[in-house]
């Protein structure tokens, strides 16, 4: 009985609030912005679908022939215009391009990253480097390669310079952020014992952030591999990307594209596996 009474009294207490709807989320500025963005995007999508110019294309038929193309590409792959060993060699050329640009990028980025980390330099130098690096990063890699192609001509040189350029900007951000993660106390401790900047960097900062640095560099290597394929096609940098370009635009051979795609996929999976192995080892020993 008593419990019941208590319950009813609790209900009475709640009642005035129940009449007013209780909101869990308050309407803040950010939620308004997010909602209106979503609504605008939805409206734009609907408008886009309505205003498409289908050119008397039968959607069903188009989908079916796309599937037919995909089937030819991936279920009946073959190599016609070059041999398996040639393809393998070209994949290694592409890997080489990715490796070279990542290596160059990493070396330059370590030093710029040190200068960009706020806890290691002053704020002005840091924000200057971070700003310029953000600008470089905002322009896609392909565009940088084409810009450098003006001076170096289309080909591998432009690709190496352009890709290195973008790798540097990407890695500077990644590295400097992992340097900034370091506890300031450690730097203070070494400063208090009279150690100088370079000693602190190599004895405390880099050992502490080595795992992050390696995993970021590996990620960039994977990105650079993908970009190197595109560069082969777009900038004539050679490698498997160029063969893909030839197969699609020159020989119009869908099945060969399928075969090359499988090649690239195999390498990508291999890279991923190596990266995972590597990181596991680092976590245990490092």
């Amino acid at each position: 009985m008593e419990a019941n009474e208590q319950l009813t009294s609790a209900k009475q207490l709640l009642d005035p609030q129940l009449q007013k709807k209780i909101r869990i989320k308050t309407l803040t500025k950010s939620s308004v912005v997010i909602r209106s963005t979503l609504i605008i995007l939805a409206l734009l999508s609907i408008y886009a679908f309505i205003s498409f110019d289908y050119k008397q294309l039968d959607v069903g038929e188009a989908v079916l022939s796309t599937f037919a193309n995909l089937k030819a590409m991936f279920l009946e792959p073959h190599l016609k215009h070059f041999t398996f060993t040639h393809a393998l060699y070209q994949v290694f050329v592409t890997l080489g391009l990715a490796f070279l640009t990542t290596l160059f990028g990493a070396i330059i980025a370590v030093f710029l990253g040190l200068l960009a980390a706020e806890n290691l330099t002053n704020k002005r130098v840091s924000s200057m480097i971070k700003g310029s690096v953000a600008f470089i990063r905002a322009v896609p890699t392909v565009l940088w390669v084409l810009i450098f192609a003006v001076a170096a001509g289309l080909g591998s040189v432009a690709a190496v310079i352009g890709m290195t350029f973008h790798s540097v900007s990407y890695l500077v951000k990644a590295y400097s952020e992992s340097f900034e993660e370091l506890d300031n106390g450690v730097i203070e401790a070494l400063q208090a014992s009279g150690a100088n900047w370079w000693q602190i960097i190599f004895q405390a900062v880099i050992p502490s952030s080595l795992t992050y640095m390696i995993s970021w560099t590996f990620l960039r290597f994977e990105i650079n591999f993908a970009v190197a394929i595109a560069m082969g096609a777009a900038a004539g940098a050679g490698g498997i990307g160029f063969d893909m370009f030839m197969a699609s635009n020159f020989y119009l051979d869908i099945r060969e594209i399928g075969a090359i795609t499988y090649f690239v996929l195999a390498i990508a999976i291999l890279l991923e596996m190596v990266a995972i192995r590597f990181k596991k080892k680092l976590k245990v020993n490092g």
């Binding site: 009279g194 150690a195 000693q199 004895q203 502490s208």
Partner: peptide, 24 residues
């Protein structure tokens, strides 16, 4: 420095007396 060994951390106390290169 958490990722380094005890003896490495101990030796860090000597960095102030060393040349930059040896310390690095």
């Amino acid at each position: 420095v958490n990722r380094l060994s005890v003896i490495e951390n101990t030796l860090h106390g000597n960095l102030g007396k060393k040349s930059t290169l040896a310390g690095v």
